[in-house]
Design a protein around this nucleic acid. Structure first.
Length: 507
RNA sequence: GGGCCUGUAGCUCAGCUAGGUAGAGCGUCCGGCUUUUAACCGGACGGCCAAGGGUUCGAAUCCCUUCAGGCCCGCCA
């Protein structure tokens, strides 16, 4: 059984209504690795609903968290002064938005493209509205229990004067301090400068520290399941302490969970937005069809890491997805693969097998043709499609757009080419010039279809006892100015015969 | 120091939740097809399931130990 269904069945044993939670601290560009979390959660929502349950998907933006440091992608001068302020209160690197929205907005747009529509929880707003009042008060009332849990479970020592609240200093920064007076909902503390500052905890002046904030969210949002990264899953980590806090202090149930692994950039290591080694989710979605992104995450077990190669590997992933799709409709897939495919669909599964054009051909056409109409006309002329239905057209448009972006950003040089408008200046030797003549004759008489053109190269090979490779090389050279290129039969057939013969004639 | 995950064919992985004769794709080799930015069709080769022990009539699967790799935690979230 697919992992999403395994989890869903477990959840349904304890009730039919579920709240599946997911979230992030929007401290930088939200990358593909972060997307694994919400897509994992989304798969479970779908699985629960498919089995007759009712599940909601939440996405918590932890925008009450402070800016921890000046990340490499930030302007040092501008942000040095802003370290310590909640992400929701500081300006974005560009534009008029706040910092958190600047990073969240494109991510949510990306989520729509992969068909994920979560209910967004604005954590900062929640604090302001006093949503955590009850939890905060309970924890403060049982400070000693909370302290004991944190100390024994995590094995760390808390300061003597520990108070379960991260204060808001008189300059607006979050900080620690020594409590001098407490009278719910007010707490007064002494800051580093020896000044006394009073926070109204019911109005979001300050926040709960993370290890208390998380279980409080579980309680307030009635979360029954959460997928989180391995960083939270370590023994004595925030999940372990959160479990105790919610059971012993907040009087609620511990959500079920699964732990997912990181997505590594092939050959470079784990993605981290803080180091800049990451591909933002929205960039990813401009480069690859959304169903393929989903599929990359639905296919493997969540606890396995994914090596992601944005170069040639991405091309292979799309090809593999297409083959999987074909096998799905031909009913040749095993249970788990079929389910992974279903869960990868953006909209409902189409009943009929969609029209598939080889992605590699599109990579060629995108570089040699001007716009989708020309591409479609060429595909029709070369016999790859007969008629394109509406979905087929939509799919093609999405894909050519992805390919353009991919070619620009991550494609390896080996797949890129430019049709030379002017004949490249090449000094061919005598033999080559002879072959060029042979080629020109052949090209002017051969049937102008991919197969016939392709075959003609082997006819030349037979007739001249020269390896076909030589003819390929010449053809690529005169058209692209490089010795390799796309599969020639198809490639030449996409061009006008006259263009090809004239070009050969200039040498 | 502690923890989690992974280890199955040359490579990438499925199978393990619920034990019952080891699977797929790619690669290799052979055959077919006039064959290339990583073509297609058919077939074959290929594995003491990391090692050791235990439970069992029976273990890739469950338990224990060891080894190897990856990562996380011991600041913050």
């Amino acid at each position: 059984m697919h992992w999403a269904d395994v989890v869903a069945e477990k959840l349904l044993e304890s009730g039919s209504e579920h709240v599946i939670s997911s979230g992030i601290t929007p401290s930088g560009p939200i990358h593909l690795g972060s997307m694994r979390e919400i897509l994992t959660a989304d798969a479970i929502v779908k699985a629960v609903n498919d089995k007759g349950g009712k599940a909601r998907l939440l996405y918590v933006a932890d925008n009450a968290d402070p800016l921890r440091k000046v990340y490499p992608f930030l302007d040092e001068g501008k942000y040095k002064e802003l370290v310590g302020f909640p992400l929701a209160e500081i300006p974005a690197p560009k534009g008029d938005e706040s910092y958190d929205q600047y990073f969240l907005r494109p991510f949510f747009e990306a989520l729509e493209r992969v068909g994920v529509y979560p209910e967004v929880v604005n954590n900062y707003q929640f604090y302001k509205e006093g949503k955590f009042e009850e939890c905060t008060k309970r924890i403060i009332d049982q400070t000693e229990t909370a302290r004991k849990i944190l100390e024994t479970v995590s094995g760390r020592q808390l300061p003597k004067n520990w108070f379960p609240w991260t204060f808001k200093n008189n300059d607006g920064r979050l900080c620690t301090g020594k409590v001098t007076k407490y009278d719910w909902p007010y707490v007064t503390f002494e800051n580093d400068n020896g000044e006394e500052v009073t926070n109204n905890m019911a109005k979001g002046e300050g926040k709960l520290p993370w290890r208390l904030d998380w279980p409080s969210k579980w309680k307030v949002l009635e979360v029954t399941f959460e997928a989180f990264g391995k960083d939270h899953a370590t023994k004595g980590g925030s999940y372990d302490t959160g479990k105790e806090i919610i059971e012993k202090i907040l009087g609620s149930k511990v959500p079920h969970h699964i732990v997912y692994e990181w997505i590594n950039l092939k050959g470079k290591g784990a993605m981290h937005s803080s180091t800049g080694l990451a591909i933002p989710a929205e960039e990813m979605l401009r480069m690859a069809p959304p169903e393929v992104i989903r599929w990359l995450i639905m296919q493997p077990q969540p606890n396995r890491h994914i090596d992601f190669d944005p170069g040639l590997g991405l091309l292979n992933s799309v090809d593999k997805y297409d083959r999987t799709e074909k096998d799905f409709y031909d009913k040749k897939l095993e249970e788990n693969s079929a389910r992974a495919f279903e869960l990868s669909q953006i909209e409902s599964l189409s009943k009929n097998k969609p029209q598939v054009l080889p992605y590699r051909h599109l990579v060629t056409l995108t570089q040699s043709k001007d716009g989708n109409d020309e591409i479609i006309a060429t595909l029709r002329r070369t016999g790859y499609i007969d008629k394109l239905d509406r979905n087929g057209r939509k799919r093609l448009e999405t894909r050519t757009k992805c390919i353009e972006e991919w070619l620009e950003k991550h494609a390896p040089e080996s797949v890129k080419f430019v049709i030379q408008k002017e004949p490249p200046k090449i000094e061919f030797n005598k033999e080559d010039l002879k072959r060029i003549n042979q080629l020109r004759e052949k090209m002017s008489e051969v049937g102008w279809t991919p197969d016939e053109i392709h075959d003609s190269f082997y006819e030349l090979q037979e007739a001249s006892k020269t390896p076909a490779k030589e003819y390929f090389r010449i053809m690529y050279s005169v058209i692209l100015g490089k010795e390799k290129g796309p599969r020639l039969g198809f490639f030449l057939a996409t061009m006008e015969r006259d263009f090809v013969t004239e070009r050969l004639g200039t040498y």
